[in-house]
Simulated assay, not measured.
Amino acid sequence: MSRVIVLRPEPAASRTADGARAMGLDVAVHPLFAPQAVAWTPPPPEHFDALLLTSANGVRLAGAGLDHYRALPAYAVGEATAQAMKEAGFAAVTSGSEDGSAIARRIADERRSRVLHLSGTTVAAMETGPLHVTRVAVYSMIALPPAPALKADAVPGSVLLVHSPRAGERVAEQFPEETRAGLHIVAIGAAAARVCGDGWASVTHPARPRDDEMLALARRLCE
């Protein structure tokens, strides 16, 4: 059986690995990054009429500053982020299963305009339309040292799951072109796929940037 290699940071890596194992797939987990809290100053909550988080890492690593915004309408990208917000004490969270641009449209449709986005130091491109978005970084992703076990586990036929353009860049660095011919890439989207470079057995991405759709593509490659 072909192997699926999960490269995203924990704890999301374990969720993806559990989903892959539920499909009967052979899984190895090798995070390329680890989230780390950064110091931040909470802006006044009265300056905003909505709170947005696009990663559960933002919820976990924002610290006590997150408490300032419990009265704001809360929005999240992804069920994992929404669940983390609920566990942090937000009673009602509106979630979207696609990306930041989709949830931004939802916020605008609900006639909110001043949005506080608690994010990482690097953020995926997001079309904000008429919204005025104030982005405050509350965590960063620290690159982990290359792990020899990653290359050992990446046997021919393996499928590498690439959940961000930064991860794609690291994969391209760690796998020289002459080592790629037997390996497949399933990326979260076109941008992440593009930076992985050439020479792979295949490079694909789902129509929507969803973990379950990435796993569906990986399963087909493993059949």
Rank of each mutant, 00 (worst) to 15 (best):
A201Q: 13
A20S: 10
R112K: 15
E173Q: 15
Y69F: 15
R70S: 07
S101I: 06
T41R: 12
A149V: 09
S113L: 13
R8K: 14
R208E: 13
A74T: 15
M141G: 03
P73I: 04
W40P: 10
G89N: 06
T204R: 12
R114F: 03
R135T: 15
E223D: 13
H30P: 03
P206A: 11
W40L: 11
P206F: 08
A91V: 12
A88H: 02
A167P: 00
R106F: 03
P45G: 08
S97Q: 15
A207I: 02
L183F: 01
T204K: 05
G120A: 12
P209I: 08
M141P: 00
H30L: 07
V59C: 10
E223N: 04
Q174L: 15
V159G: 00
T122C: 00
A80F: 03
D198I: 02
R170H: 09
P43L: 09
G63Q: 08
V38I: 14
G129K: 04
G96E: 15
L53D: 03
L221E: 03
G19S: 09
Y69G: 06
A124S: 14
T54H: 07
P176A: 02
V29Y: 01
S97M: 10
G58V: 06
R135M: 12
V195N: 04
P176Y: 01
G157V: 05
A201M: 05
P130D: 02
L61W: 11
H132P: 00
V4H: 01
R114N: 11
L217I: 14
E169V: 15
A218K: 01
A82H: 09
A193C: 13
A64K: 12
A39R: 14
M85W: 06
G129S: 08
T94A: 14
V93A: 12
H132A: 11
D49Q: 07
S97Y: 03
E177G: 00
H117N: 12
S113N: 09
V27G: 06
K86A: 10
A74F: 09
S55H: 04
H68L: 09
